[in-house]
Simulated assay, not measured.
Amino acid sequence: MSPNSLIPSHRKPRRPSPSSRALRAGVTGGFLTLAVTGVTVPADAAEKPVSETQEMPTITAALATSAAKSADTAEQTAFNYERQALQDSALSKAGESAEKDKAEAVKKAKAAEFASQRKAEAVKKVQGARKAEAVQARASRSAERTPLSTASPDSGSSTTGSSATLVAFLKAQLGKAYVLGASGPSSYDCSSLTQAAFSQIGVDLPRVSQDQSTAGTQVGLDNLQVGDILYWGSAGSAYHVGVYVGGGKFIGAQNPSTGIVERPLSYDQPTGAVRVL
């Protein structure tokens, strides 16, 4: 062992050679970063020459442009999604509004139909009530009146009560003129004469022959009573009327040539008869 081996050495530590330096490089956040290990930078070496760093701006600008384009694309996509969402929402609301309007229209139509049906039913009930009242009134009048004749039908016997008043009025009109549409007192047509005669005993008859032929109860010509209305033509469509006065005769305003006359049934056989008393 050398006697000098225990004496501390006064040599300076050897600096690493340039070949031992390690260069590390990487890209962080779009920027190029360099790390040098084991390199001591002189104090007077603050910046590297521009020629050594001229690639850095080019790489940074390209990455920034790409990132900007990506951001623009993402923003446009988001805008498109938002616009489509608004359109879908508007269409959905319009559809809901249309369905609501349709349902309301159907509801109103059903209400109108129901109201129309109710109105028709009400009219029908009113008409039925009026018809029932008319039938009841006619039955009441028939029950209150005195029978037209005390003898057998078509016997020619004298009449009493209201029938006598009826026949007396008709006989008083014999010889007066027949004028179509006239209602007395100097002239009549067939239906106005019967109407005037029955008004003398408180019976209101319709004005025309067609209605008078259905004003009472239909009776056979072989079962006539004084005061029965005779008609010619069919019931409801009669073209002529007269009044049976007993003894096989009737009185009526026949035509402009004869005026008001009394004739036997054989003179002009009637089609049918109705009884209103």
Rank of each mutant, 00 (worst) to 15 (best):
residue 209 S to N: 07
residue 204 D to F: 05
residue 57 P to M: 04
residue 90 A to C: 05
residue 243 V to I: 15
residue 147 P to W: 09
residue 246 G to I: 00
residue 182 A to N: 12
residue 218 Q to I: 03
residue 10 H to M: 14
residue 19 S to Y: 08
residue 161 G to I: 06
residue 188 Y to E: 06
residue 95 G to F: 14
residue 198 F to A: 05
residue 219 V to H: 07
residue 265 L to I: 10
residue 84 Q to W: 03
residue 4 N to E: 08
residue 116 S to V: 10
residue 111 A to F: 02
residue 67 A to N: 14
residue 60 T to A: 15
residue 71 A to S: 10
residue 124 K to I: 03
residue 89 S to I: 10
residue 198 F to D: 02
residue 178 Y to H: 07
residue 103 A to E: 07
residue 149 S to W: 00
residue 223 N to R: 07
residue 35 A to T: 15
residue 216 G to T: 03
residue 80 N to F: 07
residue 120 A to W: 00
residue 204 D to C: 01
residue 214 T to Y: 08
residue 198 F to R: 09
residue 168 A to M: 00
residue 50 V to H: 11
residue 262 E to M: 13
residue 115 A to L: 06
residue 152 S to T: 12
residue 137 A to K: 14
residue 2 S to M: 03
residue 159 T to W: 00
residue 162 S to D: 15
residue 243 V to Y: 00
residue 107 K to P: 00
residue 234 S to Q: 10
residue 258 T to G: 00
residue 157 S to C: 00
residue 252 G to M: 07
residue 190 C to P: 06
residue 175 G to R: 08
residue 168 A to G: 05
residue 56 M to S: 03
residue 115 A to C: 00
residue 232 W to V: 01
residue 146 T to E: 08
residue 32 L to C: 06
residue 165 T to K: 14
residue 152 S to K: 09
residue 94 A to Q: 09
residue 180 L to G: 13
residue 181 G to F: 10
residue 4 N to F: 14
residue 149 S to L: 02
residue 5 S to P: 01
residue 166 L to Q: 00
residue 216 G to P: 02
residue 194 T to R: 06
residue 191 S to C: 12
residue 184 G to S: 11
residue 19 S to F: 06
residue 3 P to Y: 03
residue 198 F to E: 01
residue 108 K to V: 07
residue 29 G to M: 04
residue 267 Y to G: 02
residue 254 Q to L: 12
residue 182 A to Q: 13
residue 94 A to P: 02
residue 26 G to N: 09
residue 178 Y to V: 02
residue 18 P to V: 11
residue 196 A to C: 03
residue 249 K to M: 08
residue 84 Q to Y: 05
residue 132 A to N: 05
residue 232 W to N: 08
residue 167 V to G: 05
residue 240 H to D: 04
residue 87 Q to C: 04
residue 263 R to Q: 13
residue 143 A to G: 04
residue 179 V to F: 04
residue 66 S to W: 13
residue 22 A to K: 12
residue 63 L to W: 11
residue 186 S to I: 10
residue 154 D to T: 05
residue 48 K to F: 12
residue 142 S to L: 09
residue 146 T to I: 13
residue 72 D to L: 14
residue 108 K to C: 01
residue 28 T to D: 12
residue 147 P to I: 09
residue 40 T to S: 05
residue 116 S to R: 12
residue 51 S to H: 07
residue 27 V to I: 15
residue 238 A to Q: 09
residue 254 Q to N: 11
residue 36 V to T: 10
residue 217 T to A: 14
residue 255 N to R: 09
residue 235 A to D: 02
residue 249 K to Q: 09
residue 33 T to K: 15
residue 274 V to D: 08
residue 199 S to T: 07
residue 203 V to N: 04
residue 146 T to G: 09
residue 37 T to K: 15
